[in-house]
Design a protein around this nucleic acid. Structure first.
Lengths: 241, 241
DNA sequence: GCAAAAGTGTTCATTGTACACCCATGT
DNA sequence: ACATGGGTGTACAATGAACACTTTTGC
């Protein structure tokens, strides 16, 4: 396997990505399971190349797991507690993977790299879940979408990182008009409302919600969407610009 | 001099502090001038010790320049463009300080430390300017308060860092009730208003402002403050808790 | 009494919420 | 025709901004 210590990365600095998607009234996060013995789930992470902007590094990490690039990303917090790495996680990982991560599998440089304390920059990304085909990379055993409310226990402080990312998503969703990044190109008003209700975990009044969204003046109203249902056909909308 | 490369610091990761104070209708930033040949002004910065939380590192750096600790700090952004260090600044610094920073003054390890690319975590701090006696540390030739609108040109992207810190101060000032951190223990309503007017660079209506602040329900009204002026004496207030 | 500045109240506009109603669609 | 869900309009409440008025202080 490739050890990051062999690459020209900044040491002890990592980037953790919370990739949000939305499907069928569920806010989902893309989470790989690590290709080691033991059930280790970890956010898509990576390191910063010496001559690379940190935003570019986040975009590169995202591209590796989603296949798409130039998606919406937002750097929201740095996680830098000294003890965030070594609360049982590392011991367990090394214990269960003596062959690959022990003295046989690694040299000292490699061992030092993974056992040192890391400061991690948290990014969250919003993607159209239909455009993403989750991709395993070398370190992954599998990768899947999980409902943000039913995430597996992840390594280190990764569950906290997701919680904080969700806080920031809620704070920014109106201000930065980012809700639409989670939807397809075109969408109905009901779909936006259900997205909001999922994100905030509370109902919104239908008519007032419509007014609020239309008053943003950022949507173009397109043709109607005929579903075959026995009711009035809803309009499709698209983000202007 | 002490080189940071001799300490047990995380490499290529720094912390930059924007220390805000307020005095006589001016929002001020504490800026040291570096103890090198050439006019190099730089935000109070430092590095993270291996077993130290990043918040603790910021607090330590702050304590070094202000003498006070446990002040209000907020981590607001990470500055990580690959080219932020080496736009003429480093060349100029090395050129003007061949004796101390050239081959004579430094070994290779020290030279590598200062010439590598840095990712910097930005913190801003709010202090009661009356409680701070600015302290030079070894690297400083001088240290002074500057009006945020009349800062000297600083190294690298430090002027941008201040601008972004000010953005975040404005965003958070109401939400996190942090305006009072810039004032003395007790203050008049007029002093709070002038602080707001300085921070936002715009006037506020006196009566509405008073109502807004009192409606926060976080202030205790104390005795009146008799200034000797020929007008009604204002009340003093203090943050509750 | 008077000027200066603090404190309070009242009105108007804007925004947000709750309720009611009409419209299109397929059976 | 009618059940279903989409779209719009109106009334009320809460919030915020503009204006007016009263109170206190030292000369």
């Amino acid at each position: 396997m490739d050890f990051p210590s062999e690459q020209n990365y900044i040491e002890q600095l990592s980037i953790d990505c919370v990739i949000f998607g939305y499907h069928q009234k569920q806010l989902k996060v893309l989470v790989p399971k690590l290709n080691f013995n033991g059930d280790f789930y970890a956010l898509p992470s990576g390191f910063v190349i010496q001559d690379e902007d940190i935003d570019a590094a986040a975009d590169r990490i995202l591209r590796g797991r989603t296949g798409i690039q130039d998606t919406y990303i937002d750097q929201f917090h740095v996680f830098g507690k000294a003890g965030r790495s070594n609360e049982t996680f590392l011991d367990k990982l090394l214990e269960l993977n003596k062959d690959t991560l022990g003295e046989k599998g690694m040299n000292k440089k490699q061992y030092d790299w993974i056992t040192k304390r890391f400061v991690s920059i948290g990014y969250y990304a919003l993607v159209d879940i239909n455009k993403v085909i989750p991709k395993k990379i070398a370190i992954d055993a599998s990768i899947d979408w999980y409902d943000v409310r039913e995430l597996p226990p992840m390594i280190m402080d990764h569950n906290e990182i997701v919680a904080k990312a969700l806080d920031h998503l809620r704070i920014n969703i109106d201000d930065k008009l980012i809700a639409f990044k989670l939807l397809s190109e075109t969408f109905t008003m009901k779909e936006i409302q259900e997205l909001y209700e999922t994100v905030f975990n509370k109902p919104f009044a239908r008519n007032n919600f419509q007014k609020k969204i239309l008053d943003l003046n950022v949507l173009d109203r397109l043709e109607k969407k005929f579903t075959g249902a026995a009711n009035k056909a809803p309009f499709l909308y698209r983000l202007r610009g």
